[in-house]
Design a protein around this nucleic acid. Structure first.
Length: 425
RNA sequence: GGAGAGAUGGCCGAGAGGCCGAAGGCGCUCCCCUGCUAAGGGAGUACACCUCAAAAGGGUGUCGAGGGUUCGAAUCCCUCUCUCUCCGCCA
């Protein structure tokens, strides 16, 4: 959520910032609502103040043993007028709130213009795209070739399309990747590991911005309790600081969680129907930081670097993209995507997305810290995948294959796999 | 799942229709005092919003959440959520 004060004081700046995303703000509509709000609120509060003081007078008169009937008569019509004024204010405020919740974040000044992914800027490339002396196979062919250890038919039988079953050392490597990532981030990057619920309430999803706007992307449980399956660990982990006033000395807060993620993929139609790239359920190791506003963008560089280290240790070629204004997620002020090289697709594919939200989430979350003056101030939130485990598995398979379809296990994973050097060996 | 108890400020805890944004204590900040420390004395110490160019000032709301009764609700009524205790069941 944007700062409501900014909307009042500098609406045109907000409008031009949002326009960079292709979001057209109805300035005159907001101005009209805002002036109605002001008028209605003043009236409602004025009547409330009047009633409060009259009621107080009644109490005092009663205490003195005087007849209060004249005072009661005087106040009789006040209640109805007050209720009407409050109802009018409430209706306007509700409209404004609903509108506010629909507004995306304003892109940071360092974010380039652009309408879609063609406007993104490549700002770094690590490693060279893997080249083979043969036609590289895709991860589906490779995985199914490993004794059928990547089994989409089984996934479809158990659940439906966009599910997979992994078996044997393929399942083990999937787990090894998770372990490796968690150990790296906790051991070398200073993150605290957290274990969190995989189902959350609507408040949590509102806090991080998935609701109200993106309900169709979520799986909602049908039971008595209105739970949603988390689409990313960002939701439960970031919501740990909801309604908290943090100790300044405790910042930055750096947390890492490994969770499954559930996404309905509504609207992603025929995209990536083959393979493990786009599943309803996948594993992710997520990095979250809660920081002082002054350190927000330095922290983004740091966090993105942490995700990059995973790729570098695994030996996977990648590039870092700075997303343009039109391609960023709803709440992000600035986003880097990491894209890993996938030989079979002969292209880079997203494997991590790292964003600073500035105070956009913190304002919804009421996540604050106490500044040196003793006043609560909104913190900044960041998160990034470090990394998406399923896609990392795909990248390892495709980049570490040989002509016979054998897969070398990256050095850093071998300790997690009993020293094994190749899959299927 | 059954029975019961509870939710008040940073924390503990009083409060039972008006004098309550809320006693008292702890903690914290500032000041005084004792050579240092310990002890003691004094003052202060919630958050959000509105109004105002801003500050000052004024106003509104908030005692788990929402609704109701009343001129007036922390206090009475209803619904919900969460916590705790006991019983049952369970990885």
């Amino acid at each position: 959520m944007l700062d409501p004060r900014l909307l009042r004081t500098d609406l045109n700046a907000v409008a031009s910032g949002l326009a960079r995303r292709g979001f057209i703000l109805d300035v005159s509509h907001i101005e009209r609502l805002e002036s109605e709000r002001k008028e209605a609120q003043i009236e409602a509060e004025r009547l409330q103040a009047e009633r409060n003081s009259r009621s107080k007078a009644i109490g005092q008169a009663k205490a003195r043993g005087e007849d209060v009937q004249p005072l009661l008569d005087e106040v009789a019509s006040l209640g109805a007028r007050m209720d009407a004024a409050k109802a009018r204010f409430g209706a306007i405020a509700e409209q404004l709130d609903a509108l506010m919740l629909q507004l995306p974040n304003i892109p940071h000044e360092s974010v380039p213009d652009g309408a879609d992914e063609t406007g993104n800027a490549e700002i770094k490339r690590w490693g060279e795209p893997t080249r083979f002396g043969f036609e590289p196979k895709d991860h589906v062919t490779l995985g199914e070739g490993l004794n059928g250890n990547m089994d989409f038919a089984a996934g479809a039988k158990l659940a439906g399309s966009r599910f997979v079953v992994l078996k044997g050392d393929l399942a083990r490597m999937h787990r090894a990747l998770t372990q490796f990532m968690l150990n790296l981030h906790t051991g070398e990057h200073g993150y605290q590991e957290v274990y969190v619920p995989y189902m959350v309430n609507a408040d949590s999803l509102r806090g991080t911005g998935q609701l109200p706007k993106f309900e169709e992307d979520l799986f909602r449980l049908d039971g008595e309790s209105p739970y949603y399956l988390i689409p990313t660990a960002e939701v439960p982990v970031t919501n740990l600081v909801r309604d908290e006033i943090l100790d300044l000395a405790g910042l930055p807060l750096k947390m890492v969680a490994h969770t499954p993620c559930f996404r309905s993929e509504a609207g992603s139609g025929g995209r990536d129907v083959r393979g493990m790239i786009r599943q309803h359920q996948f594993e992710k190791v997520e990095l979250v930081q809660i920081v002082h506003p002054d350190h927000s963008f330095a922290a983004l560089e740091e966090l993105t670097g942490h995700a990059e280290t995973v790729l570098e240790r695994l030996g996977l070629p990648y590039r870092r993209m700075l997303l343009c204004a039109g391609d960023m997620g709803f709440g992000a002020a600035k986003t880097y995507d990491l894209e890993v090289w996938l030989p079979a697709q002969d292209t880079y594919r997203e494997i991590s997305s790292c964003s600073s939200f500035e105070a956009f989430q913190a304002r919804r979350l009421q996540a604050r810290f106490r500044n040196p003056e003793g006043k609560p101030e909104l913190a900044h939130t960041l998160n990034g995948s470090g990394l998406a485990v399923g896609r990392t598995l795909v990248a390892v398979l495709e980049n570490f294959q040989d002509e016979g379809g054998r897969i070398a296990i990256p050095e850093v994973l071998r300790p997690y796999m009993g020293g094994q050097t190749h899959l299927g060996a």
